[in-house]
Every structure is written in C-alpha cells, then in structure tokens.
Amino acid sequence: MRFLHTADWHLGRSFHGASLIDAQAAWVDWLVDTARESRPDAVLVSGDVYDRALPPVDAVRLADDALKRLVEVAPVVMISGNHDSATRLGFGAGMFADAGLHLRTDVSQIGDPVVVGQAAIYGIPYLEPDVARPLLGVEARGHGPVMAAAMERVRADLATRPNVTRAVVLAHAFVAGGAESSSERDLAVGGAASIPGSIFAGVDYVALGHLHAPQRVGGRARYAGSPVAFSFSEAGHAKSVALVDLDGAVPAVELLPCPVARPLAVLRGELETLLADPALTGAEDAWVQVTLTDAARPAEAMERLRARFPHAVVLAFEPSGVVARSEESYAVRLRGLDDRELAAAFVEDVRGAGPSAAEQRLLDDALSAHRVAEAVS
C-alpha cells in the first residue's frame, strides 16, 4: 500500500501582504504530476486546506482545481484543520465520495474509515475540545481527552476488521515533541495544547497536520509540513510531501522535495555592508528579512535595501551595543506574541499594568469562546 501525504495548504494566505496564490498554484501542478508519477493508492490531506474559515474566491477555485485533478489519479482522503470551517469544507461530502473525494470533517465519521485495498483510513478532523467533548462523551477538558476518545472509536472499528488490515489515521493536532514555527495558530488558550504520541498506539501510520516543518514524531507519526513557507521562522525548512509505503512491518517514507517559488533570506548587519556584500547575491530574488545593526538608524533604509533586494518585506533595527528601547514601535514589541499574550499586552499598554488573575480568566474565556464560535461556523 502506498500513500501520498500532504497537509497545511493554507490556500488564501499571504506572505507579509504579498499574495501566495501563484506559488500555491504552481505547487498544486507539481503535486498532481507527482501523484501521477508515484501512483499512490490514496492521497492524504491532513487539514488546513484553507487559511481561514471564509477563504477568498481564488483559494476556493484553486482547491477545486487541485482536488478535481487529484481524484483522477487516486482517492483523496481529507480532514478539516483548525483554520478550516469544518461545516463548509464538509459540504457535499456524501456526493463527493462517489467521485473519490472522501471528506472527514464531522466527529460522527471518526469510526467510519475509507477502505482502500487492505488499508482502513480513519480521518480525525481538528477537535476543538469544548465543541467535541459532548459529541465524544468526554467530561475532562483538553485536547488529550478528546483525541483519546476519538482513537477509542478508531480501535473499536479496527477490531471488527481482518487482522491483515493496515490502519492509517489522519489527524490535525499538536503532538508533544514536534518543532513549532511562528506561522501556526495556537490550539489552546492558557492550557496545554499538545497530546502524547502514545495516543495513536496500534496504528500503522499517522498522517499529521498542523506543524509546518516536515518531521517525524514518535515511531509511526509524521507531519507532512506546509508546501510553502508562511513566515521567516521557516527559513530552514526543506518543504516536502511524504510518499509512504506500508508493505513492510515499518512504514517506508520517502520525502519528495517541493518546488521553491521564492526562497527566504534572513540578513543581519550594517546597511552599507549588506548592500555591498557579493556573498548575498543569492538573496536578491528571495523574500528578505533584514535586521540592521548600524549605530544610528540609516535614512531611507528600506528603499535602499529594495534597490538590491526587491523582495525585502521585513526591516528591524538592533543597533550594536545598544539595549533595545521600550519606546520601539508597538508592532515590533508585539511581534511573535500568541493571542493570550497579545491581549495581556494590550491591557498593559492601555493602563500601564497587566491584567489581574481574575481579568486574565475573563480574557481566556473570551478567547476560548471565540475559538468555539469559529470552529462551529
């Protein structure tokens, strides 16, 4: 049995204000060609097909084109991620299954696998704990309990199947030990978002989505990673899709490198040095993040940088030997904060003191309610 595993397309996302739709369309062409050449028994898409619950029209058109061509090659099994609207992504699931597109966006479908040859493929959509708990009969709060309950349904169905059946699970979650980047949305507010890899025990392969770096977690679980980079924290990623063979006792995985539409470059130094350094020629066609270390802020720094690096999109100043000043721009001070930290920073900025414990609980409840509303929208 052979599977092509991909995830985290995030169609409709931009890169520092620049559209990525052309790069994503080129990647879709490559993915379809790769599927035709590798001849998988199924294509696995582990969530975050779109970047938001209400994706732009060009993103929907691209997804439609991608899936229409992929199902001509092999059945496609797709789950919803935390960025997707499960209801909208799952529209027409019953009809699409007849065409080879198997959507798993509903908790009630977790124990209902897509059977391909001798493999039972179980799709576990992203489970927002407070939404999924009553549906799964779980009292405890958190990602771990709801995922454990979902896997109980998987194992219950698997126990009814022949011993030769290979079990594959798609899931969109943060498994402990995975390496994060700044472009993923946090899955929890004020609580543990990760789940232990042991939850998936007894499965031949776990096709994960959520983290954007391709990586293995545990013995049989793997993140496919995103097909293109969405932040400079991904500058060191080698984007790929996973070609998985389950013919042996242990999954054999080949990572197929994705095409790079535009590389990332992270530069640091004094302005004049960066403009003159011949070793930086390769960065001239890249998305560029620059940190200038000049003792004094150079005039028209971004304009001068873009004369050499046309795709410079981020500029920061960290003068050598100077402690960063508290009056630096609000945007710089908030960069990299998660939703919870951002809300607390706003309170502190407005009144000069952070939220009290009671106020933090109110903020957490508000953020959790927003996540729940978004998950069911």
Rank of each mutant, 00 (worst) to 15 (best):
A201W: 08
L127G: 00
E272N: 11
A249F: 09
L170D: 00
A224Q: 08
F91W: 12
D8V: 01
G178S: 03
W9I: 07
R220F: 07
L20F: 01
E348M: 13
V168E: 05
S231G: 11
V260P: 10
G178E: 01
V228C: 02
Y223F: 02
S85P: 02
S38W: 14
A201R: 14
G12C: 07
L101P: 04
G218M: 04
V206S: 02
A25K: 10
I195G: 02
R297Q: 11
V60K: 04
S231L: 11
A26K: 11
A324T: 15
V376P: 02
G209N: 02
V164S: 14
R361E: 13
A249M: 10
V169E: 01
R361Q: 15
R133V: 00
H83G: 04
A299S: 15
A373Y: 03
A86Y: 01
G17F: 07
A66Y: 09
P125L: 07
G354I: 12
M78C: 14
G123W: 00
L187Q: 00
L31V: 09
A316D: 15
L158Y: 09
L11T: 05
H370K: 15
L127P: 00
P75K: 05
W9N: 02
M302L: 13
L31Q: 04
D294R: 03
L70M: 09
T160V: 05
I21V: 13
A150G: 01
P134Y: 00
A358P: 13
S80G: 07
A358W: 08
V154D: 00
W30M: 08
P227G: 01
A156L: 03
M1A: 10
F96G: 09
H370M: 15
H5S: 02
E270K: 13
V131G: 00
A283E: 04
L362D: 15
R36F: 09
A159N: 03
A224P: 03
F174N: 03
S38A: 13
L315R: 12
L158Q: 09
A66I: 11
A173L: 11
A132S: 04
V217A: 03
P214N: 01
T165L: 08
A120Y: 08
P113R: 02
L103A: 04
A63V: 12
E359P: 10
L337W: 11
A358V: 15
L187Y: 00
G190Q: 07
L271R: 05
P56W: 02
A93G: 09
R335F: 06
Q109V: 12
L246H: 06
L101R: 06
A7Y: 08
D8K: 01
G202R: 09
V288W: 03
A301Y: 07
L305N: 01
P251V: 04
D247T: 14
G12W: 05
G352P: 12
E184S: 05
G47L: 10
A148N: 08
A307F: 08
A357H: 14
R325W: 10
P278S: 05
M78G: 09
V169L: 03
G90P: 09
L136T: 00
V71K: 06
L275V: 06
A286D: 07
S181M: 07
L158F: 12
A299M: 15
A242C: 12
A312Y: 03
V146N: 00
R351Q: 11
M78R: 12
A59Y: 06
R141Q: 13
P278N: 03
V347L: 11
P40N: 04
T281H: 14
T165C: 08
W27K: 12
L101I: 07
V73N: 03
